[in-house]
Design a protein around this nucleic acid. Sequence first.
DNA 1: AACCCGGGGAC
DNA 2: GTCCCAGGGTT
Length: 383
Amino acid sequence: MSKQWETWDEEKIKTFQETFLTWYHKEKRNLPWRATNDPYAIWISEIMLQQTRVETVIGYFYRFMEQFPTIQDLAAAEEQKLLKVWEGLGYYSRARNLKAAAQQIVAEFDGEMPQSIEEIRSLKGIGPYTAGAIGSIAFGLPEPAIDGNVMRVVSRLFCIEADIAKASSRAPFDEAMRTIISPDEPGEFNQALMDLGSRICTPTTPKCEECPISQYCLAYAENRQTDFPVKSKKAKPKDVYYIAGAIEDQGSFLLVQRPKTGLLASMWHFPLVEVTKEQYDALQRTWVKEEQLQLDLIAEEDALEIFPGLPVVWQKRHFGEITHIFSHLKWHVLLFYGRKRGEIPLQDSEWAAKESFENYVFPKPQQKLVEQLKKYQKLDKDF
DNA sequence: AACCCGGGGAC
DNA sequence: GTCCCAGGGTT
């Protein structure tokens, strides 16, 4: 069932709203920004609450409203005074954006908080979530205010499988919210969701036995509360940079075997040394030049410092570059060619004729490196 | 879409 | 220690 909210009829939606709002009116916490209808105060509180816990915000909110009681005061605020009040809250661009938006309101909206969702959204520092929160709480607009908290609650309510880590997943939550939001008390409804999310429908161990809307919750009915929300780990593969050496001695190449544990355990590859991105970029720039695509460039005096201590005469250009993406790592490997000029101590390594490479287990990056090497060998006939 | 911004609480 | 945020701007 992909859009479970579509199965709710009008009657069910109405009783749901009544049940939920009745709970909220009884249980809602007394917070300073809930004791006012001032759109300015509600705005300030919503900005402060971004990425910040309620308990932390309360003190800051009082001090801020005392220092800057009106939009005009904020628009005229000294930046240093503003940042001083914000000190310790973090995300200081929020404070700078507040002042910019206050000046916007003075200049464009006659000093009063605009009342349409589009105009609210046009203010600096106000995105879809905050616009929905201000619009619904201060002006009674039937707009959803979708943040991570609401997505958690709503994903459980309807077993929404969309990955909340993706921006495109906003759509189903917006659609579901517009179906169930109370048209009469949208602000109360949105705040009820926030309270539920922070106190009952918590991330790891939701207190379903205390939940006022568990009888409406599909995840609860299926005992799948902890399957939601679906959220992919960002885990962008981390960039790692290596220099690989194809070291030749009379038709054989030096291969080393990886440790018996860990990544690519026990597999064989050219000697690798990790370098910083800066070293990598420098080698790439210095050592690749089209006009050097001839073979007479092996220069004794230009031995690479990359493999310290190895008696190898390196050729002063790289022989190709490969990248390989693992689940958590992205390898960037620059391949150099060199010839043995002295005894190389063999530890977990062997000399292998390239005709015998098929007898070794090569991981994909090593296979790619061999391909690069072959390409250059074709270019350079007497290689 | 990816990255940046800050701090605190939960685990 | 690491994870997770009551997001929005910039590029």
